[in-house]
């Protein structure tokens, strides 16, 4: 069983790769051909957000009593990214390439700085507090179905 920090970090990289693949497709074959990869990207991201919001963060908050701290900030950034993902979808629908790439650039940086905070700080903290529940949490996240 991997440790939480590695498991979540790997999921970040998988999301990054899908995101980059989507941009590449849009660049080489146009927006019309990108719909499928967009859906894949959106659902992978949503799955990751929910693993945190429904499993990992509540467990951490319960254990440490920190409900207004870093997890709350990360939730707000998830909201920001959800709206970006939706806007990217709208740009795809209206076949607006400039808007699409303008938004994906914004999303990419938003995503990366968010990942960095989680990987370098939050996951490290979570690992320190939750090592006893490591395997159980990973199984729950792995089995979780996106709502």
């Amino acid at each position: 069983m991997p440790i939480i920090k590695e498991f979540m970090t790997q999921d970040h990289r998988d999301c990054d790769d899908t995101f980059a693949a989507m941009e590449q497709k849009a660049n080489s074959e146009g927006l019309a051909a990108t719909q499928e990869l967009y859906q894949k990207m959106a659902s992978e991201m949503e799955h990751h957000f929910q693993m945190e919001e429904r499993v990992l963060f509540p467990a951490f908050e319960e254990k440490t009593g920190m409900t207004q701290g870093p997890t709350q900030m990360m939730r707000m950034e998830h909201t920001q990214m959800r709206s970006l993902i939706q806007e990217i979808g709208e740009a795809l629908e209206s076949d607006n390439k400039d808007r699409f790439f303008g938004l994906t650039e914004t999303m990419m940086i938003m995503l990366q700085q968010h990942n960095m905070k989680e990987e370098q700080m939050l996951y490290t903290m979570i690992q320190q507090h939750m090592s006893a529940e490591n395997d159980q949490l990973i199984m729950m996240m792995d089995a979780m179905i996106t709502e």
Partner: peptide
């Protein structure tokens, strides 16, 4: 801007 709650804002590229 986004953090302040504005949604209709230009993306970075624009």
């Amino acid at each position: 801007l986004n953090g302040m709650g504005y949604m209709s804002i230009p993306s970075m590229g624009e």
